Simulated scan of single mutants.
Amino acid sequence: MKTVVITGATSGIGLEVARLLAGQGFNVLGIGRDEARCRQAEASILSENPGARVACFAADLMQQREVVRIASVIRNLLDAQWNGELHALINNAGCVRSRYMTTEDGYEQQFALNHLAGFMLTHMLLPVLLKARGRVILTGSNSHKGIRVHWKDPMFRRWYNPLIAYKQSKLCNILFAKGLNDRYGNTGIRAYVVDPGLVKTDIGNKETGFLVNLVWSLRKRHGVPPAVPAETYLYLCRQEPAPEGLYYYLCKEKAYSRQVTSENANRLFEISRRLCGLDE
């Protein structure tokens, strides 16, 4: 039995991926921000798959202390029940903001949750991923194209544009995946980014201002149900041997930005390590 950890697992894409994987016999460990929604997600999945092995844990991954805490909980559970092995970590949690907002660590929230949380959680779970020759899957976006990392001020403290900050965070997702493959590809670990396309979720309606909320409410009407992109995550979890590509859309490889180079990936890796307070 293979175990998968999914962040942002209580709604939208994350919930549909959890539902799909649980129905395919995976052990599913979900992470959501709200305790009540964690229980609702578990109940929803179990109502469709009474024999599913699923558990959801509440953690605010925007805060680094919470990433450290939940990583410890998961590692202890894996060691106790599943031979200390993690088949896949799906870093799906994300947010959209309409103004400059920071975490308790002082980091811009889109950069903190969309990139640093997944970076830090992956680092904390690396031993159990290595043991399983596992996979790391990130939720990306086609919006990563046409943007560069603002290296001198990656959190846009001096000049903030929420849309640019979001797009940069999605570029960071694919640079992180590239960096993981460069560093750990020879160990059997593989990292991927899924482009879900336009999906009917509430990401643009959570803690956003009136205009962003309105625009997203209108735009998402043209999106596909979360169950559509969920199939790509299942594909990347099930394929044996692990696929060789990096960026996937509807279960097929897709072209990505020319900014995705080993040089940029390594530069982001070092910045992220410092911001997360991680030792080599």
Score class of each variant (00 low, 15 high):
39 R>G: 06
255 A>V: 14
32 G>Y: 13
152 K>P: 00
210 F>S: 06
173 N>P: 02
223 G>D: 06
195 D>G: 04
102 T>D: 04
30 G>V: 12
134 G>Q: 13
207 E>P: 00
215 V>M: 01
163 L>K: 14
38 C>T: 08
191 A>R: 02
48 E>C: 01
45 I>C: 06
51 G>Q: 13
49 N>L: 00
118 G>Q: 01
38 C>W: 08
218 L>H: 00
119 F>C: 12
119 F>Y: 03
84 G>C: 11
102 T>M: 03
280 E>M: 02
51 G>I: 01
51 G>V: 02
57 F>S: 11
91 N>R: 03
3 T>D: 12
97 R>D: 03
143 S>E: 15
154 P>D: 08
123 H>Q: 13
73 V>S: 13
148 R>D: 15
254 K>T: 14
230 A>D: 04
184 Y>A: 00
89 L>H: 11
245 G>N: 06
229 P>C: 07
98 S>T: 15
130 L>Y: 08
231 E>I: 01
180 L>V: 07
119 F>L: 07
12 G>D: 08
16 E>W: 08
90 I>R: 11
238 R>L: 12
145 K>C: 12
61 L>C: 08
204 G>D: 05
224 V>D: 05
210 F>K: 09
47 S>D: 07
165 A>K: 08
191 A>L: 02
116 L>F: 01
235 Y>L: 10
93 A>Q: 13
35 E>A: 15
221 R>K: 12
48 E>S: 05
127 P>G: 04
259 Q>M: 05
238 R>K: 15
76 N>H: 08
206 K>C: 01
86 L>C: 11
47 S>W: 08
98 S>N: 09
159 W>V: 01
274 R>P: 00
266 N>M: 04
46 L>R: 04
194 V>I: 15
46 L>K: 06
84 G>R: 14
255 A>E: 13
233 Y>V: 06
175 L>P: 00
266 N>L: 02
137 I>S: 05
277 G>P: 02
55 A>F: 09
104 E>M: 06
90 I>E: 05
7 T>S: 15
191 A>S: 15
276 C>R: 03
39 R>S: 12
18 A>D: 09
124 M>G: 00
230 A>F: 10
231 E>G: 03
248 Y>Q: 07
256 Y>S: 06
273 R>T: 02
33 R>Q: 14
29 L>W: 15
168 Q>M: 10
143 S>G: 09
190 R>M: 10
71 A>Q: 03
88 A>Y: 10
167 K>Q: 15
79 D>I: 03
126 L>W: 09
89 L>M: 09
160 Y>I: 03
133 R>V: 11
157 R>Y: 10
209 G>D: 07
160 Y>F: 15
155 M>E: 14
121 L>D: 11
19 R>D: 10
163 L>N: 13
276 C>D: 00
104 E>Y: 03
66 E>N: 06
21 L>Q: 10
66 E>P: 00
143 S>K: 09
